[in-house]
């Protein structure tokens, strides 16, 4: 197994890491790039805790070989805040609605939801539930997560509709 220097574009920055071909993106993000907000909970693509965005598309970083993610724009939960450190409307809504309990699924939920809102600014409740159908949560019963995502969608749409 040959080690190589790989280059990643994560959260708007270019980062290098020494990786081996078998390494998974989730492990490189967490162990090599220090982005531990992305969680590893099943390592088989069934729980969504490791969800990150690659070119805006939600992917399971536990099913993605790190070397194959090199030419893609990656976004992790650490990249949701803006450059001034302000929270993303989804993050604010998760706080307002108390949509986290233990917090372990939260990053994956936020990333799945942000992909949804990027693609569809006016989702229905069903759309929201579908968008997080690959994300498991054992604490919240999902109710407040769904409410928070719908609330964030409204917030973001309202903000956009304020005339310039």
């Amino acid at each position: 197994m040959t080690k190589q220097i790989a280059t990643f574009k994560v959260n708007g920055r270019t980062r290098e890491a020494i990786v081996e071909p078998h390494m998974l993106l989730v492990d490189v993000l967490r162990d090599h790039l220090g982005l531990t907000g992305t969680k590893r909970a099943c390592a088989s693509g069934n729980c969504g805790a490791c969800t990150v965005l690659a070119d805006g598309i939600p992917i399971c970083s536990c099913l993605t070989l790190a070397v194959r993610a090199q030419d893609r724009e990656l976004t992790t939960v650490e990249g949701l805040v803006d450059s001034q450190g302000n929270l993303h409307p989804l993050q604010k809504a998760f706080i307002t609605h108390c949509a986290s309990q233990c917090g372990y699924c939260t990053a994956g939920m936020l990333m799945s939801a942000s992909a949804l809102l990027n693609a569809d600014p006016r989702p229905t409740e069903e759309d929201v539930k579908r968008s997080i159908s690959g994300n498991l949560c054992r604490c919240t019963g999902y109710v407040k997560i769904v409410e928070a995502i719908l609330d964030a969608a409204n917030e973001m749409t309202d903000a956009k509709e304020i005339p310039a």
Partner: peptide, 13 residues
């Protein structure tokens, strides 16, 4: 709302 959540929603848990 919870004091805990700022760190949990930003991946700082």
């Amino acid at each position: 709302t919870r004091k805990e959540d700022r760190r949990l929603v930003t991946g700082r848990g």
